Amino acid sequence: MPKLSASTTHPVRFTLNGRERETRAEPRMLLTDLLRHELGETGTHVGCEHGVCGACTVQIDGEAARACLCLAGQIEGAAVRTVEGLAIAPGRLSILQQAFQEHFALQCGFCTAGILMSLDALFRRDPYASEAVIKDQLSGHLCRCTGYAPILRAAMTARDRLREENEHA
């Protein structure tokens, strides 16, 4: 994607994975394009481009959101978190990422970033989410490789570990 001239773009200031960012975006630019092509955050995948598959899920002000349905200008002043911001520290996976690794809850990995961001938002909001609530959250994501059973096992393991961590904090 070619760089846009300053005359056709508008400034966008926001926090990305805890760091203040300022960039420019064309009025019709999607958040997926801003993240991937302008900022190099390629963990946010583009699947259907209609908000159906969930591969592009990020968090905006702590809520799961489809980046393919959000214009870049809409994140002005917001806190955006992508899968790149999920790890605790470089080389240290989050509890959720560890559970996915342990349960082999990914195959090709295309859908994984969106699922992780969606589940992370759920567990931050509801650390006691029931299996039914977790399944409902997962219903907004298309995965063609795993059959969902390992994803559900990983999610439940992560939920239990996060709950235990919260209770001992």
Rank of each mutant, 00 (worst) to 15 (best):
A78N: 11
A79V: 13
E20S: 14
E131I: 05
G73V: 04
H103F: 06
L122P: 02
G62P: 07
A89F: 07
A87D: 14
E84P: 03
V80M: 09
V52H: 03
Q59P: 04
C70M: 15
P127I: 13
T42P: 00
L34E: 01
E22T: 11
V80W: 00
E41Q: 01
F110G: 07
R124E: 08
T112M: 11
L122K: 10
V12F: 01
A105G: 12
A121Y: 09
H45P: 06
I88G: 01
R92M: 04
G62D: 14
E84Q: 09
L16K: 03
L35H: 03
L93M: 15
D126C: 13
L31E: 05
A113F: 00
A67R: 09
V83I: 14
Y128Q: 09
L93T: 06
A72N: 08
G91P: 12
G51P: 02
L69W: 02
A99Y: 02
R124W: 10
E41C: 00
G85Q: 09
I75D: 10
L16Y: 01
T57G: 06
A99N: 09
E63N: 10
E49F: 10
A79T: 12
L69V: 06
F100V: 03
G62H: 14
C68S: 10
R124H: 08
A67G: 12
P127L: 14
G77T: 08
A113K: 02
Q98R: 15
I95C: 15
R19H: 13
R81W: 00
G51C: 01
E102I: 14
I95W: 06
E41G: 00
G47T: 03
A99Q: 10
G18L: 08
M29I: 01
C48W: 09
E22C: 07
R66E: 03
V58C: 10
S118I: 07
H103T: 05
H103I: 07
A105L: 05
Q59V: 02
T57S: 08
I115P: 11
N17K: 12
Q101L: 13
V80E: 07
E84V: 07
G114N: 09
L93I: 01
E131Q: 13
L93V: 06
A25S: 08
T57W: 01
L35K: 05
A99M: 08
R125H: 03
A64Q: 10
L34W: 02
A87I: 15
L71S: 08
V83K: 14
T32A: 12
I115M: 15
S94Q: 06
G18D: 01
C111H: 00
R24M: 11
L34A: 08
L16G: 05
E20C: 01
